[in-house]
Design a binder for these strands. Structure first.
Length: 835
RNA sequence: GGGGGAGUGGCGGAAUGGUAGACGCGCAUGCCUUAGGAGCAUGUGGCUGCGGCCGUGCGGGUUCGAAUCCCGCCUCCCCCACCA
């Protein structure tokens, strides 16, 4: 195909070198766009779903939010992702490597409010800009499969899945306390509250009561704890386990029948039922439904004030662990069924309404929080699990560890571990409670009171209630002429035309649901849509899904360790149970790359833009890509600085120089020089292949630099044949191709290689070619390096021992001493132990 | 409080029981140049009596040999956290 004759002559600036040949200088600005045009025109990155000769590989980088510009963090993420995809392609896989835009979300609306530009226009403008910037990177995406989640053709299927979930009991509407972000004027899922603040805007989140739509993610809590079928980083696995937060315990009921209420008692959850005999009080959360009924008249004023104050407090104040615990008595008592003791009931805001039963049994001797609380309010502290060597003295702090049951009636003397079982057993036998499993994970709240998202396809009818929009009426399109100033209600409420719709059941007057869906809905299944992005009748092609899903390799940042990755795992299970897919996990292998930051912190469009464009202009995309990958291990990230980028640029020039030399100038065929270059070649291949497979791009590049240096030495030496030189050039380029795709392609074609280098297979390495003719052996005396010797590669141990012992360095340190031991590590070192 | 990760030259980082500092940045010297914030070459952990000695956060241990394994500390980063 394209060869050197295609190169415009005006860009070819001949320079002469010390060998007298005339060659062109490396000019990234001319090469990169031209090479990309060749890729585009030939369509080499288009996915061929039909090709089943090659094994399939579905590889995907988390798609970006179209914030306006690709910043250096995007380059860091996508360079590595593209290198992985290109490498797999060159290993002979049929690769699907798509890209798209996660296009719904608040920034578009905020821009609209501020700049008086419609979110849609803002978003699509950004996408157009970012697509251009993406082009500069030269990634091997199949853009024909691009997905934009704010397209009605895409979000139609969000609505479709919502309706399916509803039919299958996986979606429901429920009233209750929800997280409310006062700045963004919308509710948030639990996962989107960090440190009591809105994950997006960092406003302090408050609680509100309102009816909202939920997905039943907790149904899969236990199943999602099993991550044995997927190869994910330990860090992410642990984060998910912690977030799901399974704990086994007992729900036990404390009797309050003396108050004649219509309830069985106060149910409390504990993981430490072995401490039940140490209960000296019970604490209700301020939101607990029994608070009002149990408060005795003389305590009412204080309790009401306390509850009201707690409601005013933000989540961040409520959940601060360092805060002093407070509470007020209700004047009521309840009875511990195990020992019939009557203990006071208090209200305390350290008890969370949303975890367990919203009430806890207070065991100050064996729980730090209860201990603090008891100390403050002078409540009795009774030890029921004795520490080792305890002889009845008062505790200085809560004793949390296991011990021996004391003050526990018939359980006295049992190790607390066994006591736990025995007591639970007794409780269940008597019907006082039961063993339960509790999770930290809450159901996924998906309603948002914002405009720029997928409308929830529900119509409320006075007669029929919440009625699903019929499938044939999808998509429920977002009206383009809504007023989107945030008001705490969805902007769609004001849009009469959207709002009013006949009930699908009775045709009576109805009103549409005006909330939109959490945008994590969009990213929960987008990978499936890549398979058939234009499909108008199905969310994805079942046949393609059967052969191509799940995603083989997924890369993205750690910030999605719980949110996106947990939702996607839930979503896939939901799809499975609806019968749309037959596998459980959406992403088989996951690699979490690190984060590029500046000294000021996270790089983002708003706070800290580092624009790659000028760097690309000056150095070229290949140089920037390699520089980012060379900075350090990909999973570590780091602080951005361009201080070393020149080194990579110099290297690119060096590679250019090496690969454009006239091999026919090489005459000699010295076996020593030939052997050295051959060993260097196979060593380089071994290292690069191993590093690329493990995403160790920094050391892969280092190995390629070493190889280039060795090639330069070989040229200098002059003792290699033209044939070996040319195969070395090819090898270097083939290894470079996934990392610096443009220059590799250009040099490959100039060398007469067939277009495209990216359709070639990576070179192999041969273990037998890793052996040099002579090897260097380190000579140690008592483990200290004293000399090195050079011996033939096939030298025997005896020969090496003699040479080592005779070496000057060894001589100096062994004379007059007794040799006690000799240790030979084949091919590496010889250690002489003297005494 | 729980979990995860890290500590190595002036800097980014290599090395997972076998020559510590690969590779690169920076720096130094030289060459080339009208010039150079360009390019090329060479050198570059510290100390040194040129034999060596010291050196991977600190203190011990195992080993012929430890950045690497074990025990005890210190520091930093990230995630989760009044989860009963």
């Amino acid at each position: 195909m394209a060869i050197a004759s295609d190169i415009p002559q005006e860009h070819a600036s001949p320079v002469s070198d010390q060998n007298g040949s005339r060659r062109d200088r490396y000019d990234h600005a001319e090469i990169e766009p031209r090479v990309r045009r060749l890729w585009d025109e030939s369509g080499i990155y288009a996915w061929d779903a039909e090709d089943s000769d090659r094994p399939k590989w579905f590889v995907q980088s988390m798609f970006p939010y179209p914030s306006g510009d690709l910043h250096i963090g995007h380059w860091f993420a996508f360079s590595g992702g593209d290198a992985a995809a290109r490498f797999k392609r060159m290993q002979g896989y049929n690769v699907l490597h798509p890209q798209g835009f996660d296009a719904f979300g608040l920034p578009a609306e905020n821009a609209a409010i501020k700049g008086n530009i419609h979110p849609k226009i803002w978003t699509y403008g950004n996408i157009a800009n970012m697509r251009k910037q993406f082009e500069l990177m030269g990634n091997s995406y199949d853009w024909t499969r691009e997905i934009i989640t704010c397209d009605p053709e895409y979000y139609k299927w969000n609505q479709y899945f919502f309706l399916k979930f509803l039919e299958n009991g996986l979606a429901y509407r429920s009233d209750g306390a929800v997280n409310w972000c006062p700045a963004d004027q919308t509710t948030l899922a639990n996962e989107q509250v960090k440190d009591g603040k809105c994950e997006r805007c960092e406003a302090v989140v408050v609680k509100r009561n309102m009816p909202q739509w939920y997905f039943a993610i907790t149904k899969y809590a236990d199943e999602m704890l099993d991550m044995s079928g997927i190869d994910w980083p330990e860090k992410v696995v642990v984060s998910q386990e912690n977030w799901i937060g399974r704990s086994e315990g007992v729900n036990i009921s404390f009797d309050i029948s003396e108050y004649g209420l219509d309830t069985k008692g106060i149910s409390t959850f504990t993981t430490r039922i072995d401490t039940i005999y140490g209960v000296t009080f019970v604490v209700l959360s301020p939101e607990h439904p029994l608070v009002a009924e149990l408060t005795q008249p003389e305590y009412a004023a204080v309790v009401e004030d306390y509850v009201a104050a707690a409601a005013r407090e933000s989540e961040i104040e409520r959940t601060s662990a360092v805060r002093e615990k407070t509470g007020v008595p209700t004047g009521s008592y309840c009875i511990n069924p195990l020992n019939d003791e009557r203990v006071p009931i208090l209200v305390g805001d350290y008890v969370l309404a949303t975890y367990g039963t919203g009430a806890v049994m207070g065991v100050p001797a064996h729980d730090e929080r209860d201990f603090d609380f008891a100390k403050k309010y002078d409540l009795p502290i009774r030890v029921v699990v004795a520490p080792d060597g305890w002889s009845g003295e008062e505790l200085e702090a809560a004793y949390i560890a296991p011990g021996v049951q004391v003050n526990s009636n018939e359980f006295d003397g049992l190790p607390s571990r066994e006591g736990k079982e025995a007591i639970a057993e007794k409780i269940e036998r008597n019907g006082w409670g039961e063993r339960v499993v509790t999770y930290h994970l809450r159901d996924w709240l998906i309603s948002r009171q914002r405009y720029w998202g997928t409308p929830i396809p529900i119509i409320y009818c006075d007669h029929c209630g919440a009625v699903p929009v019929p499938y044939e009426d999808l998509p429920v399109e977002l009206p383009s002429d809504a007023e989107f100033q945030p008001s705490g209600r969805s902007p769609l409420v004001e849009h009469e035309e959207f709002l009013n719709a006949p009930c699908p059941k009775c045709d009576g007057p109805g009103q549409r649901e005006t909330d939109t869906m959490d945008t994590f809905m969009d990213s929960s299944w987008y990978h499936m849509r890549y398979l058939s992005p234009g499909d108008a009748s199905n969310p994805f092609d079942g046949g393609l899904a059967a052969t191509w899903a799940p995603v083989d390799q997924y890369t993205g940042g750690m910030e999605h360790a719980v949110m996106h990755l947990l939702y996607a795992r839930f979503f896939n299970r939901a799809l499975r149970d609806i019968g749309l897919v037959d596998f459980s996990e959406p992403y088989l292998h996951l690699f979490s790359h690190g984060t590029m930051t500046t000294e000021q912190g996270r790089i983002s469009k708003r706070s800290n833009p580092v624009t790659p464009d000028p760097l690309v202009q000056k150095y070229g995309a290949d140089t920037l890509r390699c520089y980012l990958m060379f900075l350090g291990p990909w999973d570590k990230g780091g602080i951005w600085t361009d201080s070393g980028i020149n080194g990579i640029r110099r290297w690119m020039h060096r590679v250019w120089d090496l690969c454009t030399r006239d091999a026919s100038l090489l005459g000699g065929e010295d076996s020593r020089a030939e052997n050295a270059l051959e060993v260097a070649s196979h060593t380089a291949t071994k290292r690069v292949l191993e590093d690329m497979a493990a995403y160790k791009y920094n050391t892969a590049i280092a190995s390629l630099m070493t190889y280039a240096n060795q090639m330069a030495d070989a040229w200098e030496d002059g003792g290699v044949s033209p044939a070996l030189w040319r195969s070395s050039v090819k090898r270097l380029l083939l290894h470079l191709a996934p990392l610096a795709p443009h220059i590799a392609e250009e040099l490959w074609m100039r060398d007469g290689g067939e277009f495209s280098i990216h359709s070639q297979l990576v070179p192999e390495w041969d273990e037998s070619k890793l052996n040099v003719e002579t090897i260097k052996i380190v000579v140690q005396v008592n483990g200290r390096v004293r000399d090195t010797i050079t011996v033939p590669a096939d030298a025997g141990e005896k020969e090496i021992a003699d040479a080592a012992l005779a070496s000057p360095g060894a001589q100096r340190h062994t004379q007059d001493k007794q040799i006690r031991r000799e240790i030979y590590v084949p091919g590496r070192l010889f250690n002489i132990v003297v005494g």
